[in-house]
C-alpha cells in the first residue's frame, strides 16, 4: 500500500529524517513512535505531499508522489498536529467546503456530513465558528475532515495530544471503529496509545528507524530482563530464596515488603528473558509444603523498550 525507500529530509543543515525505509500493507494500523523532534511529523508531512523529500521515494498504491501528487492526496485523509482549522468558519460550512474540494456531489455530500457528524460526535457544534470550539471538538472536526471522502489511508498526527482522558478514549474508540477496513498511521509519543490502538509500531529516533514490528516482537527483541511475582504461604525467606536461586535463569530474588505480621511471603524474581520459567518454579515449589498463592509474569512494558531504544547514546 505504502512503500517508502531511503526517505531523507534536510531543513538547511539539520537532518530531520535520515534514510528511512518501510512498507505498510493494506489494513495495518501503524503507530509511529518517537521522542519529540525525532522526525515523526516530518515523515508524515512527506507522506501527505506537504513537504518535498530531499531524497528518496514514496509510492502509494503504485503512484509515485513526484508524478501523481493529486492521486495520492485523493487516497489519503490527513489530520495534522493540533488540527489547525480556519477559525472564523462555521463547522458546517467548513465540512461543506472540504466535501466540495473532495468532489462529493450534492446528495452524497449532505448525507456524508451528517454521517460524520454522528460518528465524530460534533452534531451540537455544527453551527459554531471553529475558533470558539474546545480543543477536543476541534480535533473531532479535524477527524471528520480527514475522513470526508472515506479515504483508504488515514494519517493522524498526534490525534489525542492535549485532550482529557474521556476525549482520548472517545477518539481511540473512533479510530478503532474505522480501523477495521482502513490503513491507518498514527504518530504519537504516548506509548499506551500505540499499545491500545496499533498492531504494528515503528519507532523513530533522531530521524532513523530504530525498531519496526508488532508490539510483541518489539518486547522480545528489546532483550534484558523480565519479572515474575510470586506469593508463598508457610515459607521462610532464606529457604525460598536459596531454592529459587538454584533455578537457572533467575538472576535475583527480592522480598516485597508486605503488611506487618503477614505470613504470606511476596517475592519478586528477576529473570533473564531467554526462557519461560513459570513451569520450573512450580516444579520446585511442589515437593515442599509451601503453598503457591500467586504466580504472575510481568510483561515488559513498551515504555521500557522505548526508553532503551531512544536514549541518548
Amino acid at each position: 500500500m505504502i512503500h517508502v525507500e531511503s526517505l531523507t529530509k534536510y531543513y538547511h543543515d539539520l537532518c530531520a529524517v535520515d534514510q528511512i525505509n518501510f512498507d505498510i500493507q493494506k489494513g495495518e494500523i501503524v503507530g509511529l513512535l518517537g521522542p519529540n523532534g525525532a522526525g515523526k511529523t516530518t515523515t508524515l508531512r512527506m507522506l501527505t505531499g506537504f513537504l518535498r523529500p530531499t531524497s528518496g521515494s514514496i509510492r502509494v498504491k503504485d503512484y509515485d508522489i513526484d508524478k501523481y501528487p493529486l492521486e495520492i492526496k485523493k487516497l489519503i485523509g490527513y489530520l495534522p498536529e493540533s488540527a489547525p482549522l480556519y477559525h472564523d468558519m462555521l463547522v458546517y460550512d467548513y465540512l461543506n467546503y472540504v466535501a466540495d474540494i473532495r468532489e462529493l456531489d450534492g446528495g452524497r455530500k449532505k448525507s456524508r456530513i451528517h454521517q460524520l457528524a454522528d460518528l465524530c460526535g460534533i452534531n451540537e457544534i455544527m453551527h459554531q465558528p471553529i475558533g470558539v470550539c474546545s480543543k477536543g471538538y476541534k480535533q473531532r472536526v479535524g477527524l471528520a475532515h480527514a475522513m470526508m471522502n472515506d479515504p483508504e489511508i488515514l494519517i493522524l498526527d498526534e490525534p489525542t495530544a492535549g485532550l482529557d482522558p474521556n476525549q482520548i478514549a472517545e477518539i481511540r474508540e473512533i479510530i478503532r471503529r474505522i480501523g477495521k477496513e482502513k490503513t491507518i498511521i498514527i504518530s504519537t509519543h504516548i506509548l499506551s496509545e500505540a499499545e491500545a490502538a496499533c498492531n504494528r509500531v515503528i519507532i523513530i529516533n533522531q530521524g532513523k528507524i530504530v525498531a519496526d514490528g508488532g508490539i510483541e516482537t518489539l518486547r522480545q527483541s528489546a532483550g534484558g530482563e523480565y519479572l515474575i511475582n510470586i506469593s508463598l504461604k508457610n515459607a521462610g525467606f532464606e529457604a525460598a530464596e536459596s531454592e529459587l536461586r538454584s533455578i537457572d535463569g533467575i538472576n535475583r530474588v527480592n522480598k516485597v515488603v508486605g503488611e506487618e505480621g503477614e505470613e504470606i511471603l511476596h517475592l519478586r524474581l528477576t529473570c533473564r528473558s531467554s526462557a519461560d520459567l513459570r513451569e520450573e518454579i512450580y516444579q520446585r515449589v511442589k515437593p515442599t509444603d509451601w503453598i503457591l498463592l500467586e504466580l504472575h509474569q510481568e510483561t515488559q512494558s513498551l515504555e521500557k523498550v522505548f526508553q532503551e531504544l531512544t536514549k541518548e547514546s
Binding site: F50, K73, Y78, L85, I101
Partner: peptide, 9 residues
Amino acid sequence: SYEILLTMP
C-alpha cells in the same frame, strides 16, 4: 491551515 489546504487534492 496551510498544511490542511495543501494536503487536500
